[in-house]
Design a protein around this nucleic acid. Structure first.
Length: 920
RNA sequence: GCAGAAAUGGUGGAAUGGUAGACACGAAAGACUUAAAAUCUUUUGGCCAGUAAUGGCUGUGUGGGUUCGAGUCCCACUUUCUGUACCA
């Protein structure tokens, strides 16, 4: 009987559904294993073949763990809030919820066809009120918490209030917006509103006036990870810097823990490195430079304390609060003109131009080590948001300062022996110091490293600065001027923000008549009727960003229907954390940072037991598209095959890949594709039209999208699953190339034919050869799955089948083991074979076979014999032959005389089971 | 600029420091067929010699090094991909 994938796959998918095969429950008698694939944003385009790659890998692992006896949690859901649905709503007036639900239904249909072992009873959608209740709840907890740097954890805001009422800010070690100095009396004398203003400076979810990435086109602010190279990641619209009052999350307070936590995670080095860079720890010093004829002190941050003697000017960021104070009357007009110019430049323009610009404030600072007066400038190459927004410029040893100094003809003083600064700065942090001797400190002759240490010590002792560690990681901006997101459970009384009572959750998203901002420029929620509390207080108009709903979803899967907690104690203590997380590395600086932050916060509150959410993380590569081209001879309707195109003047034209098979164009289909090609003519090679190809992003406009449904329809889900794994290493990005799929499809057909020739009732012991093949396979596949080397295990299945066929294997017993091993990869066909072979229950629950080395032992061992590293012949000796006897056999072999050529070997190396090398 | 990863046949890719190119695609030849598709068999890194079996040389981006032995380890370089950036 032929292999009928459609009938088999439909039947088993129905069987699994009806039997709730993949439903799991907490079961403390069994070890748990939590496999999670990053949930998708359900876009209107549906899934393409790139999406399932990670899901298939996760599914294989989940099924494997299950067969090993683990209680496996393998859920799936949808990241349902997002800009595309809202953009679509603006264009069509269609409620984003409707579009989203439709897209979800389509995704589900596509996912179901591939045969995943998801426990759909745990499905979550971030836009469900039962789900986003807990997103709002977490925000509320953050609002009601502050970060105690002393204890290194978040604590309830009430404890801060208690502290302030006794000590004021004296001795307070708290993460905050700006350092406040209050006495207990000051605090106690404050009104409620004043107190709330103070507390806002400490809350973990706080409202702050900050420079934000404003995207006018999208009408909203964006987080740093949503902006790349000055444009929005979604849509590619220009982004500018704007000062706005926004909700923020004090992620920066967690920077040290986010950095340290990476150590114990089983993630790839490159991903950890990306996070390290994003967190951006830099150890340096903060130093105060007094301003001449003023009592102002300019505070700067530097990692090169050793270079103080080479400071020839200071630079302020345009947004720095010092600018106003330091600008002299003579310079005021010039400075204001400059600030105005900077303000109107977008971030993108600033980055592209990279033009040196700046203006002198008129003031001078005094170098505390030399007593010399140095000018203070303003320039946009200094960032307001990092360090103190002011720098000491050392043009000899910093390329940016160098460019600035050259442009404005400021002095450049080299501080390192042998450094030539006539053409460029000397940025390397090594060498011997020169020109670095002042009245109190002498660095001359020291190595840079030692000079830094000595200077740091000196400035601390002198009280002109302190050692400081800075982090690049900024607080996350948490407001979006958008409709399609979680509403904030926040209302305003006397212009002050209050969170609602927990009993009011979930705060449901109201209906509105249009999804555009209001005429007054308020967010869309400004259109909602009665968007006020019961007491009539107005409710926050912004909604939460996309990462809000995805930051703790892995916790919710553990206990998805609990309506009294995000995750119940029992479920949390059992499932704890995600053992294996599969997803794209593009989330390295977004979701994967926010989730870790969110989880650590909940950990501080005692809500969860694990302080890191994702123990092991595997990044699947992107699957790119493979576009096909035809070549039209200019000004004609004649198309020339790829191999002959150099003889003509041609225009390459993208052609729908559905008209092409193995790069051969189907001429009739092509003519029917577009009316203008109906009477196309062709110049063929060998009777075929060969198309060109290019690897590009998979997208509709390039006619290179491959829909998994089509592959499943034609080849079956098992073939799709195997082929996606066979394509190459999981982590690597690669183009989707349908050309090879026939090989995998043939394999399954051969497997089916082999199985079809067996007598299922045969219980006889497999032969020695069969046992050897099977145990080799068990060993290989087990090892491959553990190391996520799925492509090589697919090959191993092919090799093993060939061996069994060659041995004319009739063993149903051997086949049953084979089926168990293949089941994670190709569950449908295996389920079918399993049942026909008389297996009990579902193959999904069959026990993973164990291998025994004794079946792999050979009667004899072949040794390649090499002379000076070059293999010349092979000898065969009985298994277990000693090294000495192998050596004797090698040198005594007939062929050896030729290569020995009468000489005595200097040395003979025998590697047991591997090789004999004779050194002459 | 900085950081990370990678470079192996016509293609995708295999190789715990031990016979490089497994497996698959593609291609070529043959079998079956009236024919095609499907299927099966054989060949397939390059070069050289031989009617042939076969034998020899060469070969994993480049140049060095360690080693009896290097695709694999070390150093330098080239190229490509990815991430990130006026972060002081």
């Amino acid at each position: 009987m032929d292999y009928n994938h459609k009938e088999i796959e439909a039947r088993w998918q129905e069987y699994w559904r009806a039997n709730e095969t993949y439903k799991c429950a907490t079961d403390s008698s069994r070890p748990k294993y939590y496999v999670l694939s990053m949930f998708p944003y359900p876009s209107g385009a549906g899934l393409h073949v790139g999406h399932p790659l990670g899901y298939i890998a996760g599914d294989i692992f989940a099924r494997y763990k299950r067969q090993q006896g683990f209680n496996v949690l393998h859920p799936m859901g949808y990241d349902a809030y997002g800009l595309p649905a809202e953009q679509y709503a603006i264009q069509t007036g269609q409620h984003p919820e409707i579009t989203t639900r439709q897209n979800i239904a389509r995704y589900r249909e596509q996912l179901d066809k591939i045969g995943f072992s998801f426990d759909w009873s745990r499905e979550i959608k971030t836009c469900d009120p039962e789900y986003y209740k807990w997103t709002q709840w977490a925000f509320m907890q953050m609002f009601n918490s502050w970060y105690d740097n002393g204890a290194g954890k978040a604590r309830p805001i009430s404890e801060l209030e208690a502290y302030l009422s006794v000590h004021g800010t004296e001795g307070l070690k708290a993460a905050c917006g700006k350092e406040l100095h209050l006495s207990a009396e000051d605090w106690n004398a404050m009104s409620e509103i004043e107190k709330r203003k103070v507390l806002m400076n400490y809350r973990i979810a706080y409202q702050g006036e900050t420079m934000v990435n404003w995207c006018a086109e999208l009408g909203t602010v964006l987080a740093n990870d949503e902006v790349s190279e000055g444009v929005s990641v979604r849509g590619g619209y220009p982004v500018e810097q704007k000062l706005m009052t926004q909700w923020c999350l004090r992620v920066s307070a967690y920077a040290p823990r986010l950095l340290e936590g990476l150590e114990k995670l089983d993630w790839t080095d490159s991903l950890k490195e990306t996070q390290r860079n994003w967190i951006g720890k830099s150890e340096g010093a903060e130093m105060r430079f007094p301003i001449a004829d003023s009592d102002i002190e300019l505070e700067i941050f530097t990692t090169r304390a050793d270079t103080v003697f080479g400071v020839t000017f200071m630079v302020l960021a345009p947004e720095s609060k010092y600018v106003k104070d330091l600008t002299t009357d003579a310079q005021r007009a010039a400075v204001e003109a400059y600030l105005d110019e900077v303000k109107h430049k977008t971030e993108r323009e600033r980055q592209i131009e990279k033009k040196v610009s700046g203006v002198f404030t008129g003031s001078y600072a005094i170098n505390p080590l030399t007593g010399k007066k140095i000018p203070v400038w303003v320039s946009d190459y200094v960032l307001a948001g990092y360090g103190t927004g002011a720098i000491m410029a050392v043009p000899a040893h910093d390329s940016r300062d160098y460019a600035f100094a050259k442009h404005f003809e400021l002095p450049i003083v080299p501080l390192i022996e042998g450094a030539d600064v006539s053409e460029e700065s000397f940025d390397a942090k090594s060498g011997k110091m020169i020109n670095s001797c002042g009245p109190e400190l002498d660095l001359n002759g020291l190595e840079v490293k030692d000079a830094i240490a000595k200077t740091k010590k000196f400035i601390e002792e002198k009280g002109i600065g302190r050692v400081k560690t800075n982090y690049r990681l900024r607080d996350a901006i948490f407001s979006r001027q958008r409709y399609w997101g979680e509403p904030f459970p926040v209302y305003y009384k006397d212009g002050t923000a209050y969170v609602m009572d927990e009993s009011k959750l979930p705060l449901r998203l109201p209906e509105i008549d249009s999804y555009l901002p209001t005429k007054d420029g308020e967010p869309p929620l400004g259109r909602a009727k009665n968007w006020v509390t019961e007491e009539g207080y107005p409710i926050e108009l912004c909604t939460m960003p996309g990462f809000a709903g995805s930051s703790a979803y892995y916790l919710r899967y553990m206990d998805p229907r609990n309506d009294s907690a995000l995750v119940g104690k029992e479920a949390d203590e059992y499932w704890r954390d995600v053992d294996l997380y599969v997803g794209g590395s593009e989330h390295a600086t977004g979701h994967l940072i926010y989730s870790r932050f969110w989880n650590k916060f909940l950990y501080d509150l005692g809500e969860v037991v694990s302080d890191e959410p994702f123990r092991k993380l595997v990044n699947q590569g992107m699957i790119q598209g493979r576009s096909n081209f035809v070549y039209r001879i200019k000004d004609t309707n004649t198309f020339v095959s790829k191999g002959l195109k150099k003889n003509y003047d041609v225009t390459p034209i993208r052609v729908d890949i559905n008209l092409v098979n193995n790069d051969i164009l189907n001429l009739e289909d092509f003519k029917a594709w577009r009316p203008e090609y109906a009477d196309a003519e062709f110049v063929l090679e060998d009777g075929k039209y060969v198309c060109g190809y290019a690897v590009e992003k998979m997208s509709k406009s390039m006619f290179n999208v491959v829909n998994p449904d089509d592959i499943v329809e034609r080849y079956g889900a098992d073939t799709l699953r195997l082929y996606e794994m066979f394509l190459g290493p999981l982590e690597q990005s690669k183009p989707w190339d349908t050309n090879g799929i026939d090989g995998v499809s043939r394999f399954l057909k051969k497997l089916w034919n082999h199985f079809d020739g067996l007598d299922a009732s045969d219980k006889s012991e497999p032969t020695k050869g069969e046992l050897k093949t099977m145990h080799k396979l068990i060993k290989k596949v087990t090892h491959d799955i553990e190391t996520f080397s799925f492509n090589t295990s697919v090959s191993a299945f092919m090799v093993a089948l060939n061996e069994l066929t060659q041995q004319k294997s009739k063993s149903a017993v051997a086949m049953r083991d084979y089926v168990k091993l293949l089941a994670p990869f190709a569950p449908h066909i295996c389920e079918e074979m399993w049942h026909r072979l008389g297996g009990e229950g579902s193959v999904v629950d069959s026990e993973w076979p164990k291998y025994d080395d004794k079946y792999l032992v050979e009667d004899s061992v072949k040794y390649p014999v090499s002379f000076n590293g070059k293999v010349r012949f092979t000898i065969e000796v009985p298994a277990g032959t000693s090294r000495e006897d192998v050596e004797k056999a090698a040198l005594g072999a007939e062929q050896a005389t030729k290569w020995l050529d009468g000489k005595t070997p200097k040395k003979v190396i025998v590697v047991p089971g591997k090789i004999v090398n004779v050194v002459l």
